[in-house]
């Protein structure tokens, strides 16, 4: 069982989350050429080792997270909010309490 350290809720079981997808993908503008959309939607690396993923804390705070995880050992190296505004808010609050 993987445990993920949600920046809002703390360390929780993976069963509270839903796996999203590849966090390294930059989706192009909605009117970008088809080749760019094709690459963003259909091309994926199959990584043995560390990769960047998105997860959503569906049974918790509903926050979308970027997670760096090793696909072999399941070790998690970093978790942070996908939305930089959420990240700023939580970071500021953490600083205030410390």
């Amino acid at each position: 069982m993987i445990r993920i350290d949600c920046p809002f809720c703390g360390l929780r079981d993976h069963s509270e989350f839903s796996y999203g997808g590849d966090a390294s993908i930059n989706y192009p503008p909605l009117d970008a050429p088809a080749e760019q959309w094709h690459d963003a939607v259909f091309l994926r690396e199959n990584i043995r080792g560390r990769q960047l993923e998105t997860w959503q804390h569906t049974s918790g705070c509903r926050m979308w997270l970027n997670v760096e995880r090793d696909t072999v050992s399941h070790e998690i190296f970093a978790v942070w909010p996908a939305h930089r505004g959420y990240g700023r808010v939580l970071h500021a609050e953490k600083e205030n309490t410390e």
């Binding site: 999203g20 979308w64 996908a82 939305h83």
Partner: peptide, 9 residues
């Protein structure tokens, strides 16, 4: 939520 948080913040 995915669109709002990961693509269009």
């Amino acid at each position: 939520e995915e669109l709002l948080q990961t693509r269009w913040p």
